[in-house]
Structure formats: C-alpha cells, structure tokens
C-alpha cells in the first residue's frame, strides 16, 4: 500500500535536488541533503496541509540542513557572499541567444557565488514567487528582485566569456 506522505514528497524531489545543487555545487552533497530533508519531512509530527505552505516548509528544511552542515564545518561566515555582483549601469545588455543552452548555463552557474546560484534555483528551478523566496531567505521582496536581476546578469557574463558555444541549429542541420 502506498504511503501518501511519501507520494506527496516524491513530487518535489527533483526540485529539492536542484536547490541542494545550487547550495553545494556538488551532486553528491546535494543528494545527501535531499535524503536528510526527506527523512525529516517523513518523520515530522506536524506537516502543513496547504500545498504552498508544505512546499515552503520542505525547502526550509533543506536549507536549514545545509546551514547546519556549514556551521558544523565552521563555514558559516561565507554563507551569503555576493562577491560577483556588478554595477547595473542601465546599459542595454545585448547577447547572442545561441550561447544560451543547458551546458553553458551549467558551466556559468558553477562560477557564480552561492547566493546567486541559490536565488536562481529558488526562482527558476523550484518555482517560488518573489514573496515565497523572500520568506525562505529571510530578506525583503525588493532584495529578491534585485538579487535575481544581478544573478542573471552575472550568469550572462559568465556565458559570454565561456569558450563553449551552442551549436547553431542551421549548422547542425547542414552537418546532418
């Protein structure tokens, strides 16, 4: 007989993994975090019934598990660095869309600060609204808005600097 608690949790596993990956930048550690989160969620006495509250609760468990691990390793001082922020001077940014692909984004994300990776994971992978992200990260909504835009700009810069280029569709067809 299926366990409804487990079924409910399974729907979030891939997004929990994505969020864990953004925090750790390591697939193995992300997997461990998801496992720890799942154990806590399945053994909790009180579980939110509302789906939005449940989702926020789950991701908070994972984030707290990550912060606990960092504290145990004595790394708490580096938790929220925004070292690669850059000035938004209002210039129109221009990009070649062909550079944006799963691989260039992956390579770019790995070069971002953890805070930038985290905000993009929370918004784009997990699918939180700005308000939900603000609650999770304990920051104002305006900070989320600013952080998202800075993180995307940093990511686009990393992609632009990469030597790896997506294969143009026209050239691909010609090659085939």
């Amino acid at each position: 007989m299926r366990d409804p608690r487990r079924d409910r949790l399974e729907g979030y596993l891939s997004r929990l993994f994505g969020y864990g990956l953004s925090l750790t930048n390591d697939r193995d550690q992300a997997g461990d975090l998801v496992q720890e989160c799942a154990l806590k969620a399945l053994s909790a006495v009180r579980v939110p019934t509302d789906e939005a509250a449940y989702r926020a609760w789950l991701f908070r468990i994972l984030r707290n598990a990550f912060l606990d691990r960092r504290r145990r390793k004595g790394q708490q001082g580096q938790a929220v660095e925004l070292t690669d922020e850059m000035a938004l001077d209002g210039n129109i940014w221009c990009s070649d869309d062909r550079l944006i692909s799963a691989i260039t984004v992956r390579l770019g994300l790995a070069k971002l600060s953890r805070a930038h990776r985290e905000i993009l994971a929370v918004i784009d992978v997990v699918g939180f609204s700005y308000a939900e992200a603000a609650a999770l990260l304990s920051v104002p909504v305006g900070t989320v808005m600013s952080r998202v835009s800075r993180a995307r700009q940093a990511l686009l810069v990393c992609i632009g600097e990469s030597k790896v280029r997506p294969f143009p569709v026209e050239a691909r067809r010609a090659a085939e």
């Binding site: 990956l21 930048n25 390591d26 697939r27 692909s101 799963a102 691989i103 260039t104 992956r106 390579l107 994300l109 790995a110 070069k111 030597k163 790896v164 280029r165 997506p166 294969f167 143009p168 050239a171 691909r172 010609a174 090659a175």
Partner: peptide, 19 residues
C-alpha cells in the same frame, strides 16, 4: 562546474567550413 545531460554545443565560431 558540474555538467551532465544531453547538450549541444560547438567550439569556436561557425566558419564557412561547417562543423
């Protein structure tokens, strides 16, 4: 960086010679 999955990329810029 952690890379995985099916992706399609090219090295360098497209030249007249194709890929």
């Amino acid at each position: 960086p952690k890379v995985g999955g099916v992706v399609l990329v090219a090295l360098g810029k497209a030249g007249a010679g194709g890929y």
